[in-house]
Amino acid sequence: MATIPLLQVERLTIGFGREKPVVHEVSFEVMPGETVGIVGESGSGKTMTALAVLRLLPPGGRIVEGRILFDGKPLHQFSEAQMRQVRGGDISMVFQDPFTCLNPVMRVGDQVAEAARLHRGRTEGDPYALALQMLRAVHLPDPERIARRYPHELSGGQRQRVMIAMAFICHPRLLIADEPTTALDVTVQLQILHLMQEIQRQQGTAVLLITHDLGVVAYTCDRVLVMHEGRVVESGSVDEVLERPRHPYTRRLLEALA
């Protein structure tokens, strides 16, 4: 029996007003438990693709064409109320800058607990106890103490761990991570990638990982799409694409790192 894709994006085209589309006929699939990377230089349309899946495009941006199926269901036709159930539930996200998602005046323990409270059906037990358990699972030292701190009182690495705790607390089936380690120190970046993989394996989560860094793709992904100017120029298994690139653009990216 063939497994059906968890996420299926078909000919996704995204535009702002009458301008020419910023994402053009992008198609890809993510299978359950799989890690798929989208890689490309800045402005290539990676973030817009991810935001379209979450239906969080910035004002003016819209899906001009295409379908987004999650577990067979048409996300592109969902109402905002339906999407609110999906976000943080079946699909959760981690962004480059934790400050954009963390509330600066709320203690981090309460914020992680709030994520569980929003999707009560998916979790069991007291949300705060669950939050502490999650903060421990992301290897934060002394989770009880960290839980009482505000976001600005944590280091960059600690904040990203909190984000990961929040993202995984409801056992999502898909995690969308947009440049999750780009803002971190290099020696901390790998710790965070390991942590994401560890919890991903425990929970069987699929990951859509967005990055400009081919090294991060090589290290973490099963398959990859290379984007350039809003289009997918090459895709395949990581071994295929990065060891034997076919498209000149992919070759150029790799040569720049030689």
């Binding site: 970046q189 710790q191 090294g215």
Partner: peptide
């Protein structure tokens, strides 16, 4: 540790063993 933090774009190299420091700076 810094050298071990560099992720090479080739999957064969990227999965080499690494010694990494714990914690933040």
């Amino acid at each position: 540790a810094l050298l071990d933090s560099v992720l090479e774009p080739k999957p064969s190299q990227a999965r080499r063993p690494r010694s990494l420091p714990t914690g933040d700076v």
